[in-house]
Structures are given as C-alpha cells and as structure tokens.
Design a protein around this nucleic acid. Structure first.
Ligand SMILES: [Mn+2]
Ligand SMILES: [Mn+2]
Ligand SMILES: [Mn+2]
Ligand SMILES: [Mn+2]
Lengths: 218, 218
DNA sequence: TTATTTTGTTAGCCTTCACTAACTATCTAA
DNA sequence: TTAGATAGTTAGTGAAGGCTAACAAAATAA
C-alpha cells in the first residue's frame, strides 16, 4: 500500500499533531531526522495521495484518510511492543526499536494473532493507548507528575518517552507502571520531587523526570 | 548492514546453489521475479562487496562471506517460521510470506529470544534445517518419496515447497511431518503412488506431489 | 558447420528518497 | 517599521533498485 518511508511520515505526523492537529514542516523534519527539503517534497506527495492537507507556508494536517492509515500503523507498533513484553519477555526499554521495524509488516493475520494472544489490550507497555481496528483511539488526558503537589498519592500510568536510556533509569529506581507514589515534598527552587513507594521511602526525581511521568489520582 | 534487497538476493543465491554451488543469472532472475538486467547489475554490486564471485558469462558463486551472510538471513527466516507455528499457532502454509518480511528485522536479541523460546530447534516447520549462529547448516541428504518402491514404509520428514497451495493440499489429506507412510503400490505408467497412513488406507498421490515430499526410512 | 534459440550484457530511462545550496516568506525583536 | 533570525521552498544532484530496447555471446539444433 504505502512505502515504509511514507508510513513513518504518517505516524510521526499523527504523534506530533496530538494537541493542535497542525504540524510544521520543521517539527516533522526534526522528529524524523530528515532535512527540511526532503520532508517538504514528501508531504507534497502525501498531499497528492490525499493523506495530508498541504498549502505553502501553512501548517500540515492529516486528512481523515491519513489519520486512519497513521492510526493503523501506530496500532501495529503498539501491539508489537505489548507482544514483545508480554509474550516474549522483553523489557519495556528494549521494544521500541524492534516495533519500529515490525510495524511495517504487511499481514493482517499476524497482528490479529498478536491481539488475540494478548487478550485485546488497550494500552501498550508504556501506558499509551493502542488504536482500534479503525485506527482510532482516545488520547489520554494527561496529568504529568510535575503538576502534582506535596501530599498527593498518585498511580504511575504512563511515560512520555520510549527512549531506552530514560526507561533504564526508571528500571534502576524500580519505577514501573501501576506503582502508587506518595509525593513527600516538592522543592520550589528546581521543581524536583521527593516521592516514596514500596522499598523506596525517599527517592528524589528531577523535574526532567517528573515531566515525563504520567499519573492518575490513586 | 545490507539492504533488504541485497539480503533477498543473497538468500536466493544460497538456496539455488544447493547442489552445484553455481547459479546462473537467469535462474536467479526467475527466482526473484526480477528482470535479468536488473539482476546483472545487482550481482556486480554484490561482487564489489565481496559477497559474490562474478565474471562475465560465468556462473555466479557466493564467497565464504556471502555464504555466511546468506546463512544468517536464512536462519532468521526459518526461526521465524518455526516461531509463528509453535508459539503463535499459525499453520505451516501461512508462515513463509510473513517470515519473508521478518527475516530482515535488525535485532539479534529478537531472534535469540525466539531461538530460546523454541528450545533451539534445528528444523523449520517444513523440515528444512535452521542454520546455526555462524550461518552454517548441513544440507539434508534428501530422499524423495518418488524414489521409493512398493512395500516400503517411510517417515515424512520434509517438503521442498513452502508455497501455500501445495501445503493446503497436504492439509486436506491430513499429511504432515512425522507421519509413517506405507507405500502400497506404484503405478508404472505415471509414477503415481498409493499410500496408507492413519485413517487413510488408500490415498493416491501424483508424481508431482511425490517429488515434493522428502522421506526417511521408518 | 551453420542457423537459431537462449542467455548475458550494455545503454538509457524512471521512481523513490535522500542531500546541499540558494532563495523567499514569515515572524520577532530592536 | 525595519533588521535579523527562523522557517519554508525551489533547483539541482546522487544512490538504490527497478524497467525496456538493443546487441553480443554461448548453447543447441539443423
Ligand atoms: Mn514505541
Ligand atoms: Mn517504523
Ligand atoms: Mn520459508
Ligand atoms: Mn525477504
């Protein structure tokens, strides 16, 4: 259907358009690690295929068709990540790069099988929603740990980065999804937090870390 | 390392060179479904990379390096097929096309995990040997069912085609690897055979079928 | 041995997806 | 309101991997 490259563009557009729905060529270029003129050319091709709305000097927007295609690729990505963790025993820090490749496999049966073996999961190992068979998902209404205040007790429900260094850091502190965190204090000068959970009565988390952790009220 | 296309060329060369070790551009072209001039150009590139020995109008040969690379790709292909059948519940007729894609995934961990979960298998679901971590395998010393004579009892140990129509035909007759077949008669005029096994006391198999079935003495 | 068929090669062209250099439009800050 | 910075675009180039047309070499048949 679409090339591997086109699929990566569509997925990046979907993820970047989370809030406003509009994406600049510049953002897309940075996200993909591809120079702007290349991206410019490609989005024009995607526009010809009615996947993207493009007008000179205007922000990019996925069409309905584009959103669906992108959603279906994201579905394959996140199902794969879940499969690798649940069925194959990978750590959550190892699976993104593999899923980045397997998401392009052309075989509906393969992903249906994964879905079935996993019991039709709705979240991936990083707490992100898995789009349905129509490529649609409800975007989580985030709450970043960094917005919480001392005394609150929250559940860790997601991370905003699937980069392996960050996830390895979390592993090293035994931080994982589902944990209840008690916020003991917030340092006003740098926004860092001291939290307690399980065998960690006094763990300090920097702002950078807190901004990447998503929580729900416990 | 190498592109997906190069990998497919190497694998095709390895499989075609089974007997003689030498492959014509023409054979390779037919196997890949790619026109001869394209193949000609590509094998020259593979020769520059020291993966193939090429001289004008001479048969092609994989170098040691080429054999190893090809063997490692074939390993990934066959491990994947085995994984899909054993761990995901696919039929042996469904897995070749998926493995054709997954064999190109760049992630040693991924295939090590498969290997481990499968208990280090040595044969794929079609009875073909899985190359080791060095890309080497012992080629099976074939015996085709078509070479057997009336009265013999043999074990079905492999098929030479992983095309899905043929495998579906075998499914329809409940023929699968490991079965003991008794050869009741061989028709001299067309080479077709009547065999018995399990609940099938009188199954007639055409020459075309018999030539594609590999057996060992029971 | 010669004619014909098959196989292999060269030349030239095309699409996809990258890049750099150079230019233009828009935004921001003085 | 204008200068400079940032973002977007166009033009030109290149590698990878396809193709067809035309021709050359080798193998096969007559
Ligand atoms: Mn991911
Ligand atoms: Mn990808
Ligand atoms: Mn196969
Ligand atoms: Mn392949």
């Amino acid at each position: 259907m679409h090339s591997l490259t086109e699929e990566n563009y569509l997925k990046a557009l979907l993820l970047l358009s989370a809030e406003t729905g509009a994406v600049s060529v510049n953002e897309l270029s940075k996200r993909l690690g591809t120079k702007m003129p290349t991206v410019n050319g490609m989005v024009k091709r995607l526009a010809e295929k009615k996947l993207v709305r493009y007008e000179s000097y205007q922000p990019l927007q996925l069409t309905e068709k584009g959103k669906k295609e992108a959603g279906l690729i994201l579905r394959k990505h996140r199902l794969t990540e879940m499969y690798l963790v649940q069925q194959m025993g990978f750590g959550w820090e190892e699976v993104h790069d593999i899923a980045e490749q397997i998401e392009h496999v052309q075989s509906p049966r393969f992903f249906e099988k994964m879905d079935e073996l996993l019991g039709y999961p709705t979240l991936d190992p990083h707490g992100s929603p898995i789009p349905d068979q129509n490529g649609r998902m409800e975007w989580r209404q985030y709450r970043h740990l960094s917005t919480c205040t001392a005394g609150e007790i929250v559940t860790l429900t997601g991370v905003t980065t699937s980069g392996d260094e960050f996830l390895r850091f979390l592993n090293s502190r035994e931080l994982r999804l589902g944990l209840k965190l008690k916020i003991k204090s917030v340092e006003s000068f740098d926004g860092s937090m001291v939290v307690s959970y399980e065998k960690h009565p006094n763990e300090t988390l920097s702002t950078v870390v807190c901004e990447r952790l998503l929580v729900d009220p416990a």
